[in-house]
């Protein structure tokens, strides 16, 4: 119990300090220069989120698919026979605040998040970078595998808090760093950490006017996860069409929310455990515009 309270207090203190500093930074940032746009093409990079938020009143419907591993061979049509899906709806309450919900077929997981952009990079010696905070909660809705014991709802909850720091260096290149804390209320053994600290890095290279290349890597600090879990590395292309962004990617992680790809990536690139997948998003403007 003492351990629980101490860890909890530390976590709260750390989070409060970070949020206070960010709020101060946001208030003091010089409001000059044009806001940079399209640091990333979409609100998702590959599996993880980007610093971008929805516009005021914008509803984004995101369909994400991840197929089985390609090393299954022709028997499983290189993974295309097995698919997991996440359906998501993100809504821009204001330009700087997005709320979203989603449901993944894997472990029948429902997730919800709040995403606040506290600082926007500006040109002409304005703010040098963009900062966005993500806070999400996820819960499994599949039946408990051990039905005979007393199970608690809290055991199925997972939390993620992430700080995204990004800079668009030029029209061709953007970089994002994302220190992340994933909390699992229940883990299997005392040797495994409930809190998992990971540091993500992502890049975007604009190849042509409509196509860009993304990389996304999450380095999880050692001695937090069981041995069978690995760091997540993903590569992808964004293809922008009118009203859509079509994202094609390969990854050693099959999950599409932080709980999965940070805490439960079982695949290894060196073993050919590579999953092909795609995200398609469609935008609808619900405020300030009437559809005919």
């Amino acid at each position: 119990m003492e351990r629980l309270i101490t860890k909890f207090m530390k976590l709260k203190l750390l989070a409060s300090i970070c949020l206070f500093l960010l709020a101060q930074l946001s208030l003091n940032a010089q409001e000059k220069g044009e806001k940079t746009s399209f640091t990333f093409k979409d609100t998702r990079i590959i599996n993880g989120q980007s610093v971008e938020t929805n516009q005021d009143g914008q509803l984004k419907f995101i369909i994400s698919h991840r197929f089985g591993s390609i090393n299954g061979g022709i028997d499983g049509f290189f993974g295309l026979d097995q698919a997991t899906i996440r359906l998501g709806l993100d809504y821009g309450v204001w330009d700087w605040l997005t709320i979203g919900i989603g449901r993944s077929s894997f472990e029948k997981t429902v997730d919800g998040f709040l995403k606040a952009r506290v600082l926007h990079q500006r040109e002409n010696n304005g703010a040098p970078l963009s900062i966005t905070i993500l806070s999400s909660i996820a819960t499994q809705t599949a039946d408990f595998p051990e039905q005979e014991r007393e199970n608690y709802f809290s055991s199925r909850l997972f939390y993620t808090n992430q700080l995204m720091l990004s800079r668009k260096f030029s029209d061709r290149f953007s970089l994002q760093l994302m220190p992340t804390l994933v909390h699992r209320n229940l883990v299997e053994t005392a040797d495994v950490e409930n809190d998992v600290v990971s540091i993500g890095a992502a890049t975007r290279f604009q190849l042509t006017k409509t196509i860009s290349f993304q990389t996304e890597y999450y380095y999880t600090l050692p001695n937090q996860l069981a041995e069978e879990y690995y760091n997540s590395l993903s590569l992808g292309f964004d293809i922008e069409t009118k009203g859509h962004v079509f994202q094609l990617n390969v990854s050693n992680s099959q999950g599409m929310i932080e709980k999965f790809f940070i805490g439960e990536t079982r695949g290894q690139w060196s073993e050919g455990d590579i999953y092909f997948g795609f995200n398609i998003s469609r935008d609808f403007q619900l405020k300030g515009r009437k559809y005919k």
Partner: peptide, 10 residues
């Protein structure tokens, strides 16, 4: 979102 953390293990 941070406020209902448990530190349980099986």
């Amino acid at each position: 979102f941070l406020s209902s953390c448990y530190y349980d293990n099986e």
